[in-house]
Design a binder for these strands. Structure first.
Length: 466
RNA sequence: GACCCCAUCGUCUAGUGGUCCAGGACCCCGCCCUCUCAAGGCGGUAACAGGGGUUCAAAUCCCCUUGGGGUCGCCA
């Protein structure tokens, strides 16, 4: 059984980097018929907030990556962690250290001055005397004094750390009694039965510390996969300037969750030349051993392209559903299929699609000035008027092809080209020179509205109206 | 500074010693299609960081250099 987890700390929103490691963890669990668990790492009472935890859970829900079982909140498990601190204390594997913060700072400063790695010097490790009064001790774990800690990372391969330059007797419980990160992570991963830890490689150097804890507590050590960071196009750490960091911003910008996931899965992982993956395909092909060792750069253009691919393929009803978020309701619109299908080819985001839908379903409030100037001149209005009459004479048209037959006949009789009529009609229908095929638009707008919109344009007094 | 990780087109990547004067995708450019804008089709520009080895043969293995990144908290 493979059990993976995603364990964000609620200091803000869900970050896309976090989403990617969550996705990898999810895929690996599902591929193996295992479980994917969610744990909120809120041990730092000062910095964590309930709102942030909720925001993360909401963002997570939006992506559709469902977790198994209940969410575990570390803040509710302090007693548990304390019992393990006590266990190590009782077994002599951890000890109280009465060094004050000032003393620690001083030690670190002098070590830095000597150009050696700042580290705790173990002065209370074997302390037997009377503790200084007025100092609440921290609890430190007895780390190995020498040798090497190594493990096989599923992404990086064999990784070795020399105890001398990596470890010291690090703190597992603060002077206020609360446990520290590495300690609770280890305990929870062990108790939750996590078999495969997939996380960002900024945690690589935490791993030897956690191994020390696993061993002190007699827990099995899981497999580790440290996935490289996501950088910006300049190869620097991703920041707000480079695009959205908050997963929910992608929703606001009109990205589909499956497109975001597809984009993220390809950042650092690939399967042959395939670019588009359904969730099922990801599950089928994904293996964390295939994750690239090197960092990859965030590339918004590719995301946009992937999103557009999804918009082209998604069922109409699904898009109709997504449009609601942008205040566009076409669920009862009789020609919604035709509407969506004619627009989806040109929309890169749901947000854009929403705007395009509005442009067609609502009568134009104004006319694009440039387009008006360029195309509403010469005989344009005269032709429009004549076309309106032809429409009225012909009577109701329904489909795009009916409109087309009518228009072609109209043009032929007058020796006009489609070009002469198409743009003015477009402007009358949507207010600009850009839209799907005019016949599609006419059909979608509907006979009565078509006439009304033509009349509206005919009555419009443009700035350069003659 | 110490330690660790990394290095193929601008970007995401394929490539696990010969099939690679390096393949796909995004972007960009050109052409086609065309009632506009897209989409689509076709084509094009563009990379093995540098230097040493090993080998009959290296993008692929080893070493060094350079360049990037990460970590060194009573944060997570």
């Amino acid at each position: 059984m493979v059990i993976t987890r995603f364990a964000p700390s609620p200091t803000g929103y869900l970050h896309i980097g976090g989403l990617r490691t969550a996705l990898y963890s999810y895929l690996w669990a599902k591929k193996n018929g295992g479980k994917f668990l969610l744990r909120i790492e809120d041990t730092d009472l000062k910095r964590n907030s309930k709102e942030a935890a909720v925001a993360i859970e909401n963002a997570f829900a939006w992506t559709g990556l469902s977790h198994d079982g209940e969410i575990i909140y570390q803040s509710t498990r302090f007693d548990l962690y304390k019992s393990y601190v006590k266990k190590l204390l009782d077994e002599g594997k951890a000890y109280k250290c009465y060094m004050s913060r000032d003393e620690l700072d001083e030690l670190r400063a002098s070590q830095s001055a000597q150009k050696i790695r700042p580290h705790y010097d173990g002065r209370y490790r074997d302390f037997k005397g009377e503790p200084p009064s007025g100092v609440e001790p921290v609890i430190r774990i007895k780390a190995p004094l020498d040798g090497e800690i190594s493990f096989v990372d599923g992404v990086k391969g064999e990784v070795h750390f020399k105890v001398k330059d990596m470890l010291d007797d690090f703190i597992i419980a603060r002077s206020d009694g609360t446990p520290t990160y590495n300690f609770v992570v280890t305990i929870d991963d062990a108790l939750m039965g996590i078999t495969d830890v997939i996380r960002g490689d900024d945690h690589l150097s935490n791993t030897p510390k956690q191994i020390v804890i696993y061993e002190a507590l007699g827990f099995d050590i899981p497999k580790f996969y440290h996935v490289p960071m996501i950088l910006n196009n300049q190869g620097k750490k991703l920041s707000k300037r480079d695009g959205a960091l908050d997963v929910m911003e992608y929703k606001n910008e009109g990205y589909l969750p499956e497109a975001l996931l597809n984009f993220l899965v390809r950042l650092g992982w690939s399967h042959k030349d395939q670019e588009i993956f359904s969730l099922d395909e990801m599950i089928e092909f994904f293996n964390p051993n295939d994750i690239n060792k090197s960092a990859s750069a965030y590339n918004e253009e590719k995301l946009v392209w992937i999103n557009a691919q999804y918009i082209k393929k998604l069922p109409v009803d699904r898009l109709v559903e997504e449009l609601k978020f942008f205040g566009v309701h076409v669920e009862n619109f009789s020609k919604k299929e035709q509407l969506i299908d004619s627009l989806r080819e040109r929309a890169k985001t749901v947000k854009e699609l929403a705007q395009m839908v509005k442009n067609i379903t609502q009568e134009p409030k104004s006319y694009d000035e440039k387009a008006y100037k360029k195309f509403i001149k010469g005989d344009a209005l005269k032709n429009l008027e004549a076309f309106r009459q032809a429409l009225e004479l012909h009577g109701k048209c329904e489909s795009a092809s009916e409109f087309e037959v009518l228009a072609k006949k109209f043009l032929e009789e007058r020796g006009l080209k489609l070009k002469d009529l198409a743009q003015p009609i477009r402007i009358a229908m949507v207010g600009s020179a850009v839209s799907p095929s005019v016949f599609e638009v006419l059909s979608i707008v509907g006979y009565n509205n078509v006439i009304a919109r033509i009349e509206k344009l005919l009555n419009y007094k443009g700035k350069d109206d003659e």
